[in-house]
Every structure is written in structure tokens, then in C-alpha cells.
Design a protein around this nucleic acid. Structure first.
Length: 769
DNA sequence: AGCTGTGGCAGGGAGG
DNA sequence: CCTCCCTGCCAC
């Protein structure tokens, strides 16, 4: 089984071909910024599993005479794994059918082999290498502009600093005070060639640094030859789409480009703990920002360059240092994935289905077995979610099943029937075993460097293991199986219901359940840490073997609002808030803070405080005492402005405040862009799309926000809590004292707990801990 | 060009 | 008012 992960035949994305007759192939080339299609002679193929056999031939791949030795040696490297898969299917179908070479189809090659070979070489080098031995270089550019933000196409908006550092601690600044722009770029080329890094890291390097550099190269008529073997950097029009955003595809042959911005996004995808994906914010979050770090607002870079260039130099050094630390922290997982999977390290942040499918296909390739086609259809079931109690309750136990779906697939032997080599189950079991042993090793390891390596490896494996279920329901997966996906979720539902029954029977009170975990109030005779552990252990024993229930957390109080929306108060006084209705990045900051603070007060039963808080916020909004940036709503758009306008014109879509605010301000947002706007005027119920103004922190004298509208919004946010009180009590708590002669009396007001059905209930509580 | 899944909440516009 | 539908964000 090891061969599936680390075997000799695991070289990535490469099929070397034996030529077998002549055919023509379309080659798409980029000429003067446009795609030009050419026809070239090419050859149908068989495969050869080891690309190293082709070393030394790379310069001969093209225009090889069809004679002698070379007749059989041609390399066909695929730009996308999808092409490899298509090739693989054709090859194996033809092998099985014993077709004659002349009948075999051909596929397209999009890049020249030398370039691609260098791209691939890096992977080979990384085999059995440790992260700490990589030569990593960090790059960051600063640019000058007379007006606000710079534009790479304007000749006067030039490069002023290129800061560089590498993993050995070396740092260097190419300073635009002494060099022309062309000289700066040539310096950069020299340094990169001299340092010869395996990896180039930067923050937002795909969308900013590289496109900018490339444009300046064009303007100055120099080449960015920073690839190995003096090759040029390429920026191709086809975009790599990731996390709802489009990216230019940038190739530096022989080196890998790592963008810490993308790493941060994929890190945060499941965790949701980063405030923003800006380098400074991420560095602070991980504790990488040094005490004397220089901060300069993006809009003041040019000004600082004029008035205090040395400060900007310090700032630029700080940027590369932080990039280095962030990359080191977030990139190791991908590095070790690159050793297990047939993907290039630099392009590892991609979908997880593609990752495991590559394992399956590689094994089929190795066994020379043909691969199936995807099944058409849809998965029909998912996880079971329910709320039993609403309000503030406690104490709370959170029990959950460890890796529910992978456990179900292993325990009940669920796999797609189309997988005739049983690779699905074998790989899943193997990875699970490997992860457990890696975790064990990690726990026993004392050397911090090795420990962090083992941690990165086990989290790489976790990513793969968790993808197996999703893959079954993936419409484009070649081994997909919707019935199997349904079996997994339905079995999960059954297990969850079984646990619910177990808890109810023993006198516990369920609050909320979701897919693989339960929040409940333990019975009165099972309170306190040990008793609660025992309670969960007893419950766990009622489950099928292979399904492991564990105590995930204990909490003093829980505020249960709706499905997937709740807050927890730990015994250490820390609070966790979950759910889009209570915490969401699009929500105005004032609203997030209001909900956060009022949730804390409700968890502690502080009714007076709740009333003061509401009164305070109402007054501050009316007085415009809350800064404008806290009234701003921020949403990411998923289409371009043109697509939006077309859809609106065709009545396929309604107008939205987000797009209107951006378009009115002269912007044309692209997918993934976050747009911040606020509402103006004095109508408490305005048509938002007609009253939204783009928020720009650089604006000198922005319009005032619509206080009436935001007071109404405050009321709507408070309304979420109305079910936690009797109606008249709710009105007293969430009313402003303004204009009243006396402060409202809140004596005797308590919060109530309701059953999901509607009736009030009383939970027995105690004051342990 | 490449893309793992379902379930759930809220806000807002359109149209009855 | 209400319902329908779409979008965006989130839990698991």
C-alpha cells in the first residue's frame, strides 16, 4: 500500500509517452498578450511511469525527427490534472482494447516541455525532504504613485523598493533611490539566480507583486528571468480560480510560488478565526509581529517615500519578515501533501476532491487498469440538525463523534462499486492508520522542529481523510457514488438519533444537535467533571464499535438561539459564539459588538446591563457618536460588475446595495472583492440599493450615516432575543430610556427557556464551579 | 479554468 | 402585509 503514497511511480502530473505514429496537436501560445493557436505535429502515446528516464532529453522533445531512438521518446506533460486523467483513460482503454496505435486519440499539450519539465523538477527534488531544508525566499515590492493607489500601467507609478529575505535569515533591499526601475529588476534577477531559491513566497504575490513586476518589465523592455536555467517568468491569461477569486497563473520554472494570502484563506476556511487576510492582521493573530514593527497605511506609502524613505525601508523589511513566518507556519501542511500527492507544491492549495482522486488514479495507472466515468445524479441527504431548547441553559456537555463520516465508511465498508481495485477503502484505511501513528509520534516527540513537522504531516493526512465523504457526492468525481454518500449521511443520522434517545432516557436534556455532536444538560445525578465524563463514556458504549464518542467540552452556560446558532460560556469565563445570525463578517461592526456584548450579559443573567447596553447603543447611534467605520456593511461579491448589470437588465437578478455602492463610486468589483458600504438619508426604511454609499477610509469628508435606519437595525438585532423573554419584559429591557422621567424598572425580569415546540420549561440547575 | 457535500439563517427586492 | 426567490455567510 505504501506505493500509493510514496511509491516510485508517484511522480506527479507527468506522463511520458512512447510515440506511435504521427498526428497533429493544437498548441496555444501567447503572442503579444493574445492566444494564438498553432497546429504542430505530435504523436499519440503510451505511458511511461518514470519521468526521470527522460532527464537529459528535455531539450529534444520538440521537433524530434521521427526516426531512430527518439522515435519512442516523447514527453507529454499535462498542464492540468484533468488532462492527465483524460489521457490516462484513453491510454488504458486502448491498452485494454489492444487498439492499434493509429486508432489512438491524442490530447493537447499547452506548454513547451522544457518549461514544464523545470516546473516538475522541483517536485522531484522535494521528495523525502524536510521543510526546514527548503531554500525559501520572500519577496515584497513597494510602489510609488502620485495619486492614491498605484497602477502598474502608468509609467510614473514605478517600483521604489523590492525587499527580499530568505529562510537563512538573509535580508536585502533593492532601493529605488539609487537605481532605475530597469536596474532594479535586473538586480532582482541576479539575486534570485544567485540565491537560487526553491520557493518564492509573498503576500498577495499572485494578484499584486507579480502582475506589477511583469507590467513594469514590459514597460522597461526587460525580461524577468528568475526561473531556473535563466528561464522567464510567465504570466498566463488562463486563471486559477480559488476560494471564489480568480488568479493569474504565474509560472517561475523550477521554483514554486507560495502566496501567504491564499494560505491564510485556506487556513481560515474551516476555522473562521482571522479578522482579515491582510499580512499585518495575520501576523498579529499568530503573534509574529514584533514590538517595533513599522505600520504604514497603504494610501500613505508614496507620501512616506517622499518624506521619510528610511522608515518605508524598515516597513518593507518588516513585511518580508512577517511573510516568512506566516509561510513557515501555514505552508508546511502543503509541503508534506506535495510529497504524498501528484501535485506541485506551489499549486497545492486546490480542492480536496482533486487531491484524493489523484491518489486513486495514480494507483489505477500503476496497475494499468482503466478508470470509470463519473455517475450522473445528486446526493439527496445530509446531516441531521435540530434544536430542542431555546434560551440560556446550563451546565452543558458537548459530546461528539470523532471523524464520524470516515468512521462510518470504514465500519460499514462503504465504497463506490465502480472502484474495482478497492482503492477507496484501502487508501482510507491506510491514511487513517498512518495519521494515528503520526499523531502518536508527534505527541511523543520532544524536538520542536520535528514535532512541528509531524504535526504538519498529520494535518495533511486529516485533510485527505476528511475529503473521502465529500468526494462520493461530487458530481465530477470519476469514482463518485451518490447512493454511497446517502448511506453515509443516513447512517450518521441514525447514530445521532440513537444518542439523542440515550440521553433523553437517562434524564439529560438536549439543547442542540448538529450532524455529529450534541449539546445537552446532563441529568442532576451526573454533574461535575468526573460524573460527566462517565456519563459520556456510558453513552459511548451503546454505540457500534468503530464509532467513538468523546467529551469535547464542558460549559457553564449555553445560549441557544436557533439551529447552528448559539453561544457558550466556559467555566474559565471565555465565550464562544457560533452561527451566521449571531456572528457574521458582513454584519456591521456595531451590530457584531452589540450582539457579542448582549450575549455575554444574557449568559451571565445581567438584565440591567442588557438594558443599559441597548439604551447606550441607541443613544450613540442617534448622536452619531459611533464612528462611521462601525456602521459599514462589508460583503464579498461573486460576479463581475458587468455580469451583475447584465443580469439586472435581464431581470434575472435584483439590484443590491453592494454593487450599486461600488458602481456609483466608479469601481467595477471582481469576484472575491469585498465591498464596504453604509446607508445614508433619514428614512428609517429606505430602499437600501438607492441609499448605499461606498465606504472609503481615505475619504476626507464622508456623508453622515442614516441614524434612523441604524436605530431601526439595532432594534431588529435585539429582536433576535425576543423569544428569551416574556413580551412585556422584552419591551422593557429593549427600550430606550430617552425621554422617560424615570428609569424603567427591571425588577423581577428573568429570562425563559422554551421548548422548540413552544412551551416554557424549567431546567434544574446547580452552581458548581 | 477548475470546482468536496448538505443544512440553515437573514436580508432584501419583486410582485401579489 | 405576505410569499417567493436570490445572495451571502456560516456549521458541520
Amino acid at each position: 500500500m505504501d506505493s500509493i503514497l510514496f511509491g516510485k511511480n508517484s511522480e506527479p502530473g507527468v506522463i511520458a509517452v512512447y510515440q506511435a505514429g504521427e498526428s497533429a496537436v493544437k498548441v496555444v501560445k501567447r503572442v503579444e498578450g493574445r492566444n494564438v493557436t498553432e497546429r504542430r505535429k505530435f504523436f499519440p502515446f503510451f505511458f511511461l511511469s518514470d519521468p526521470l528516464l527522460l532527464r537529459g532529453f528535455e531539450k529534444q522533445f520538440w521537433n524530434v525527427p521521427l526516426s531512430g531512438e527518439n522515435y519512442y521518446r516523447h514527453l507529454c506533460i499535462f498542464r492540468r490534472w484533468g488532462d492527465m486523467r483524460a489521457a490516462m483513460r484513453i491510454v488504458s482503454d486502448n491498452l485494454n482494447a489492444r487498439k492499434e496505435p493509429s486508432e489512438i486519440e491524442y490530447i493537447y499539450v499547452k506548454l513547451d516541455p522544457v518549461h514544464q519539465f523545470l516546473m516538475q523538477t522541483g517536485i522531484t527534488l522535494f521528495k523525502e525532504m524536510e521543510f526546514k531544508d527548503l531554500r525559501r525566499m520572500q519577496l515584497d515590492i513597494e510602489t510609488y504613485s502620485r495619486s492614491g493607489f498605484s497602477n502598474a500601467s502608468r509609467p510614473e507609478d514605478r517600483l521604489i523598493l523590492i525587499s527580499l529575505s530568505d529562510s537563512s535569515g538573509w535580508e536585502y533591499m533593492i532601493d529605488g533611490r539609487r537605481r532605475s526601475e530597469a536596474e532594479m529588476i535586473l538586480d532582482l534577477v541576479d539575486i534570485v539566480r544567485d540565491k537560487d531559491p526553491d520557493v518564492i513566497e509573498g503576500h498577495n504575490i499572485y494578484n499584486f507583486d507579480f502582475p506589477y513586476l511583469m507590467r513594469r518589465c514590459e514597460i522597461n523592455d526587460v525580461k524577468l528571468r528568475i526561473g531556473r536555467e535563466m528561464t522567464e517568468t510567465r504570466m498566463s491569461a488562463p486563471r486559477l480560480s480559488y476560494a471564489d477569486q480568480d488568479f493569474l497563473n504565474i509560472d517561475v520554472p523550477g521554483r514554486h510560488i507560495i502566496d501567504t494570502y491564499l494560505l491564510a484563506q485556506s487556513y481560515d476556511y474551516s476555522r473562521r478565526e482571522l479578522e482579515s487576510y491582510g499580512l499585518k492582521s495575520i501576523a498579529k493573530h499568530f503573534g509574529f509581529a514584533s514590538a517595533d514593527r513599522v505600520y504604514i497605511d497603504g494610501s500613505r506609502i508614496s507620501e512616506t517615500w517622499r518624506t521619510n524613505p528610511d522608515l518605508l525601508v524598515r516597513y518593507a523589511f518588516d513585511d518580508v519578515r512577517e511573510t516568512r513566518m506566516v509561510a513557515e507556519h501555514l505552508s508546511q501542511t502543503n509541503f508534506y501533501l506535495a510529497q504524498m500527492l501528484p501535485y506541485n507544491y506551489g499549486q497545492m492549495p486546490r480542492g480536496s476532491a482533486a487531491k484524493i482522486e489523484s491518489l486513486f488514479v495514480r494507483e489505477y495507472l500503476r496497475k494499468k487498469h482503466s478508470v470509470p466515468r463519473p455517475q450522473a445524479g445528486r446526493q439527496t441527504s445530509g446531516g441531521y440538525t435540530d434544536v430542542f431548547l431555546r434560551g440560556v441553559v446550563g451546565p452543558i456537555i458537548h459530546a461528539d463523534v470523532e471523524s464520524l463520516y470516515p468512521s462510518i465508511m470504514i465500519t460499514y465498508n462503504i465504497s463506490p462499486p465502480s472502484d474495482s481495485l478497492s482503492v477507496f477503502q484501502k487508501t482510507l484505511k491506510h491514511l487513517t492508520k498512518l495519521r494515528l501513528s503520526t499523531k502518536k509520534q508527534m505527541r511523543e516527540e520532544t524536538d520542536p522542529l520535528r514535532k512541528s513537522m509531524l504535526d504538519a504531516m498529520q494535518s495533511s493526512l486529516k485533510i485527505l481523510i476528511n475529503s473521502f465523504y465529500g468526494y462520493l457526492g461530487y458530481s465530477r468525481g470519476i469514482f463518485n457514488d451518490f447512493a454511497a454518500a446517502d448511506t453515509v449521511t443516513e447512517t450518521g443520522q441514525k447514530i445521532l438519533r440513537q444518542m439523542i434517545a440515550g440521553i433523553t432516557e437517562t434524564g439529560g436534556a438536549l439543547v442542540e444537535v448538529d450532524t455529529d455532536g450534541l449539546y445537552f444538560v446532563p441529568p442532576t445525578d451526573s454533574r461535575g467533571e468526573d460524573a460527566e465524563k462517565n456519563f459520556v463514556a456510558r453513552l459511548a458504549r451503546t454505540l457500534p464499535s468503530g464509532i467513538n464518542l468523546s467529551l469535547d467540552g464542558r460549559y457553564a452556560k449555553m445560549l441557544s438561539y436557533k439551529k447552528k446558532n448559539y453561544a457558550l460560556l466556559g467555566y474559565d469565563g471565555r465565550m464562544k459564539i457560533r452561527g451566521s445570525a449571531l456572528i457574521s463578517r458582513s454584519m456591521e461592526r456595531f451590530a457584531r459588538e452589540f450582539i457579542h456584548e448582549s450575549t455575554a450579559l444574557m449568559l451571565r443573567g445581567d438584565i440591567e446591563g442588557l438594558h443599559r447596553l441597548f439604551t447606550d447603543y441607541s443613544q450613540k447611534i442617534l448622536d452619531r457618536a459611533i464612528p462611521l467605520e462601525k456602521m459599514v456593511r462589508t460583503e464579498a461579491v461573486r460576479e463581475t460588475a458587468d455580469e451583475y448589470l447584465t443580469a439586472v437588465a435581464a431581470n434575472r437578478r435584483n439590484r443590491t446595495a453592494t454593487f450599486e455602492a461600488a458602481i456609483n463610486a466608479g469601481l467595477s468589483p471582481r469576484p472575491g472583492d469585498r465591498v464596504s458600504y453604509y446607508i445614508v438619508g433619514n428614512d428609517p426604511n429606505p430602499r437600501t440599493f438607492m441609499n448605499a454609499v461606498l465606504f472609503d477610509e481615505r475619504e476626507e469628508s464622508p456623508q453622515e450615516y442614516n441614524a434612523q435606519y441604524y436605530v431601526r437595525k439595532l432594534g431588529e438585532y435585539a429582536e433576535r432575543f425576543s423569544e428569551f423573554f416574556d413580551p412585556e419584559d422584552f419591551r422593557k429591557v429593549f427600550s430606550s430610556d430617552e425621554g422617560a422621567l424615570f428609569t424603567t424598572s427591571l425588577d423581577g425580569i428573568t429570562m425563559k427557556v422554551t421548548e422548540a415546540g413552544g412551551s416554557d420549561v424549567k431546567i434544574e440547575e446547580d452552581d458548581e464551579e
